[in-house]
Computed example of a mutant assay.
Amino acid sequence: MSQGDERGYGDNEPRGHTDDAYSTIGGTRQTRTRLPGGADDGDGYGRRPARSSRSLIMVVGVVVLLIAAIAFANQGGGGTPGTGSEKKPDAAGAGSTAATGTEPVQGKNGTIASGFAHDEQGAQSAAANYAVALGSAEMFDKTKRDGILNAVIAPASIDKFRTTLDEAYSTDFFRNLGLNDDGTAPAGFTFISRTVPIGTKTTESSTDQATVEVWCSGLIGLAGEGSTKPVTDGWFTITMELEWLDGDWKAITHSQKDGPAPVGGDNRASSADEIAGAVNGFGGFTYAR
């Protein structure tokens, strides 16, 4: 686990990574707790009684009704994507992250979603997508990093972000992560840096500005036989201030704090090959709803 001061962009600008490999942009911190195991209760599964034909008919009936309800809901999903004309979700509670029926954005700015709705939901979706991009392995490549910043950061803030990040993604930082001096993975290894939003909420909102918190899990490390920097997970919350500019939401500040972190499970740690295969085989999501 990595301990230290809070990383992020305090004072409205990003900070470096040289002393903490597990920061939000290009990395995640870990917080892990394990509770004592309980008594063994066997396989934990009792034998299920055989289903009667009546029970089977009821189950089939429920499935048919569910399919019909989904089809009906899809037929009624009017509205134009990205217009923001639909009803806003409630600002508080789990419902703020639940599906609302608003159609997802259709646009792309490179590989990053764009054209978010000009409302609270659109700001949340933008923040979630931007958290994914800013925490990706692509940030370790100078050319790709510049492209990401151009896509998600407000023009007035890009130079400050770029200067700070160019200093942060240094040779020493790469070496601390087990990477080559140019930020690439050594031969035979796969570098993994992925941020996964769990939920979002808006803490402040006006017509053209919003502050959004994104609760995330993340992975970072080198997958490969004999890796001294194995892939680990972490939990953190990203806060972004967003501004509506030229028909889309753009980030003007970015900061991070640790947690909330759940109790660690008792899952068997997968092999390096399994982790590398999973990351290469499972693509990330576009968080637009």
Rank of each mutant, 00 (worst) to 15 (best):
R175C: 02
K108S: 11
D258M: 10
T232F: 06
A210K: 10
K144Y: 04
A73H: 13
L222I: 08
N74H: 08
P262N: 01
F191G: 04
T286L: 09
G78H: 05
F191K: 12
N129T: 06
L56G: 06
N12D: 13
A94K: 08
E120R: 15
P230K: 02
G10A: 08
Q121W: 01
D233G: 14
T200C: 04
S52F: 02
T207Q: 07
T286M: 05
Q124N: 02
G122P: 08
W235P: 00
T195P: 12
K257W: 02
L242G: 05
L245N: 14
I57S: 09
Q209I: 05
N150F: 01
D141T: 09
T33H: 10
D233E: 13
I252N: 06
G264I: 01
G82W: 13
F116E: 13
G188L: 11
A73M: 10
D119Y: 13
N280R: 15
L222D: 06
D146P: 00
T286A: 09
S205A: 07
P14R: 00
W235I: 01
G77R: 15
D146Q: 12
T203W: 06
T203S: 13
V212K: 01
A117R: 15
P197K: 02
K87C: 01
G122C: 00
E243H: 09
D141H: 10
T97E: 02
R194A: 11
R162H: 07
A94E: 11
R54G: 05
G107S: 15
N12R: 09
V105G: 14
P81S: 03
P155M: 00
N109D: 14
R15A: 12
I67S: 11
T102Y: 07
S2D: 11
